[in-house]
Computed example of a mutant assay.
Amino acid sequence: MDQIQGGGIVFRLMQGVKICLKSEPNRKLGIEFADYNRTVTHEVTYPNNVKLSIQEICPSIFGDIREMNKISQISLLKEWDIPQDKLTASESSGKSGSIFILSNEKSFMIKSIEKREEKLLLRMIHDYHQHLVTNPQSLLMKVLAFYSIKNTISRESYIMFNNLLKINVSIDEKYDLKGSTKDREASKVERAKAVPCLLDNDFIAAQRKLHFGPVKAEFMKQLVADSSLLCRFDSMDYSFLVGIHKVKPEDKEFVQSQKSSIFYNSPLGDKVCTIISSDKTEIYFVGVIDIFTFYDAEKRVANAAKSVKYSEDSLSTVNAQKYSSRFCTFVDSIID
Rank of each mutant, 00 (worst) to 15 (best):
I4S: 10
G6T: 06
G7P: 02
R12N: 12
K18H: 06
C20A: 15
K22A: 13
E24R: 14
N26K: 14
R27N: 09
L29W: 12
Y36S: 02
V40A: 03
V40S: 04
E43A: 04
Y46L: 13
P47N: 06
N49M: 07
V50N: 11
S53Y: 05
I54M: 14
I54V: 14
E56Q: 10
P59S: 03
S60I: 03
S60C: 10
G63E: 08
R66H: 05
N69I: 08
L76C: 12
L77Q: 05
L77E: 07
E79N: 10
W80A: 10
D85L: 10
D85W: 09
D85V: 11
K86P: 04
T88E: 15
T88D: 13
S90P: 01
E91Q: 15
N104G: 13
M109F: 13
E114Y: 15
E114G: 15
K115F: 13
K115H: 14
E117K: 15
H126V: 14
Y128C: 06
H129R: 13
Q130I: 11
N135I: 03
L140H: 09
A145E: 07
Y147A: 00
I149N: 07
S154W: 03
F161R: 00
S170R: 12
E173C: 06
E173M: 04
S180P: 07
D183R: 09
D183Y: 08
S187I: 01
A194W: 08
A194P: 05
V195C: 11
L199Q: 08
F203I: 03
A205T: 10
K209T: 05
L210P: 00
H211V: 05
G213E: 07
P214Y: 01
E218T: 13
L229V: 13
C231I: 02
R232Y: 00
D237G: 08
Y238C: 08
G243Y: 02
I244R: 06
P249N: 02
D251A: 11
S257R: 07
S257V: 00
Q258D: 03
K259Y: 02
S260N: 11
F263C: 01
L268E: 03
L268M: 02
C273L: 05
I275H: 01
I276V: 06
I276G: 04
S278H: 10
D279Q: 07
T281G: 10
T281L: 12
I283V: 14
G287A: 06
G287E: 06
I289P: 01
I289H: 06
F294K: 12
R300T: 02
V301G: 03
V308R: 13
V308H: 09
K309T: 09
K309W: 04
N319K: 07
Y323C: 00
S324R: 02
S325Y: 09
R326S: 02
D336T: 13
